[in-house]
Structure formats: structure tokens, C-alpha cells
């Protein structure tokens, strides 16, 4: 049975334990940062930062809200990046968990095209063109552990488990939240494995909180690639 996250942003305190736990588990270096007039740091996801708590101030109904959004790869059920790459040596599904995994072979892909394909603006490239992003801690998951970000979360904002259980949890929490927040919603729950719940307009949390452009319909480009794939697969062993 495949896995999913449920991220309840209404419980997030932006302690950023998840952000550090991610770096620790993946042994990612710290970036050189400076204070840019906000707590959010680094400024954005990067090749060395897979998990980033985005922090935005918004006045809603005359009241100040500080909105926290622990951003990461959504591990799409039908991942446009994977489809776009069309190269299982570079991007593939980890079967047991459902994680979308990037390998060192992403270096050979057209990085701009992969990044462009992502509805959530997640993949980031190194100077040499290799792509990186959240891997769901699939190694931990295979060993029966929770992803590092979930393990460290003190409040229950980050949850992880069987997909059906996570969707149940998400629905239950949404039902409760809707009593006080009419605009509460789950973000693209049917398409992705990292289901966020927000209390307000998702655009206030992050520009890419929900799928951009046409959402999860595949592009003409990807359709074309799918059509050509058998040929490519035939050719590649000899390349």
C-alpha cells in the first residue's frame, strides 16, 4: 500500500525542525544566507534545501495572520516531471512508497524542461545540471521509519502513513476546521501524496501551494514524448 503525507498547516508553528531534520538526514550543507528582512531562510528551495518553511504575513478579515507553509515535493501520483523525463534511470517511482525519486542521472535531462513541468515549482538544479528534491526519506520508510521531517514535528502538523489513512485523517481534520474556517481546504488531494490543509486562500501561503497552469493534465509536450517513448526505449540500450 502506498504512502502519503498529510500536512496540517493550522498546527504548524514554523519551528523549522523539519527543515533541519531534512538537512541532517540527507547530509545537506548549509547555504550561506543573510537576513533579508524575514525569518524565512534560505530564500527558496535549492539543490541543497529540499524542505523549506515559507512564512507570510497576511491581514484576513481585519486580523493579522502569520501563515506557515512547510513546502516540499508533493510526490504526484502521476508525476509530470517523471513523464517529462521519460527516463527511469533518472526519475522513477519507488514502488513500495510511491515516492518520486531523482537520481544522479538527472544530470543528463533537460533541467529547465523538468523544472517547467512541475506544477509546484519544486525541482532545483546544481551547477552541473543534476536535479534534486525531497525523496520522501524512502530509505527510512523502507526501514519502517517515518520521514525525518515527520519524526521531528512536535505538533502533529506533519503526518505520514498509508495513503488511505492520511486521506481519512485529512478529511476528518477538514470537517472540524470548516466549522470555524469556511474557506478551509485540502490542496489537490486526489493528485498528490503530500496533502496540505490550509485555513485560507492557498495563494496567501505560497504562489505554488496548488498546482499551477493546467494542473495535472499532461502537456502536449509530454503526450508527444509518451508517443515517442517506445522508440526511445528501443534506441537507448545502444546509445
Amino acid at each position: 500500500m502506498s504512502k502519503s503525507f498529510f500536512v496540517d498547516t493550522t498546527l504548524c508553528t514554523a519551528c523549522r525542525g523539519c527543515q533541519v531534520a531534512c538537512k541532517q538526514w540527507h547530509d545537506l550543507p548549509a547555504e550561506k544566507t543573510e537576513n533579508r528582512g524575514t525569518y524565512q531562510n534560505p530564500a527558496d528551495l535549492s539543490f541543497d534545501t529540499y524542505k523549506l518553511v515559507r512564512m507570510n504575513e497576511a491581514v484576513i478579515g481585519g486580523q493579522l495572520k502569520w501563515l506557515f507553509f512547510p513546502d516540499q515535493c508533493r510526490h504526484c501520483l502521476e508525476a509530470p516531471c517523471l513523464e517529462t523525463a521519460g527516463d527511469p534511470a533518472a526519475i522513477y517511482y519507488d514502488e513500495p512508497s510511491g515516492a518520486v525519486i531523482y537520481t544522479a542521472a538527472t544530470k543528463n535531462l533537460d533541467a529547465a524542461e523538468i523544472i517547467e513541468s512541475c506544477p509546484y515549482n519544486i525541482p532545483r538544479k546544481a551547477l552541473d545540471g543534476t536535479l534534486a528534491k525531497c525523496d520522501m526519506c524512502y530509505d527510512r520508510v523502507a526501514a519502517g521509519m517515518q520521514p525525518a521531517c515527520v519524526k521531528t514535528c512536535p505538533t502533529g502538523a506533519m503526518n505520514f502513513g498509508e495513503r488511505a489513512d492520511m486521506l481519512d485523517l485529512a478529511q476528518n481534520r477538514l470537517t472540524v476546521l470548516k466549522r470555524t474556517h469556511r474557506g478551509a481546504m485540502l490542496l489537490d488531494p486526489d493528485d498528490i501524496r503530500v496533502v496540505f490543509m490550509v485555513a485560507y486562500d492557498p495563494g496567501l501561503y505560497h504562489e505554488h501551494a496548488v498546482a499551477s497552469h493546467s494542473g495535472h493534465g499532461i502537456s502536449r509536450q509530454v503526450a508527444l514524448r509518451r508517443m515517442l517513448r517506445p522508440l526511445k526505449n528501443l534506441v537507448s540500450p545502444f546509445a
Binding site: V20, K23, Q24, P29, A30, E31, E34, N35, Y39, N41
Partner: peptide, 12 residues
């Protein structure tokens, strides 16, 4: 600790 300094690098 570089990861912590990364998040809060400067007095503000």
C-alpha cells in the same frame, strides 16, 4: 551549527 545559522544568520 551551520544549519541553524543558515535559518537565523544575523542579529535583527
Amino acid at each position: 551549527q551551520p544549519w541553524l545559522l543558515e535559518m537565523q544568520p544575523q542579529v535583527f
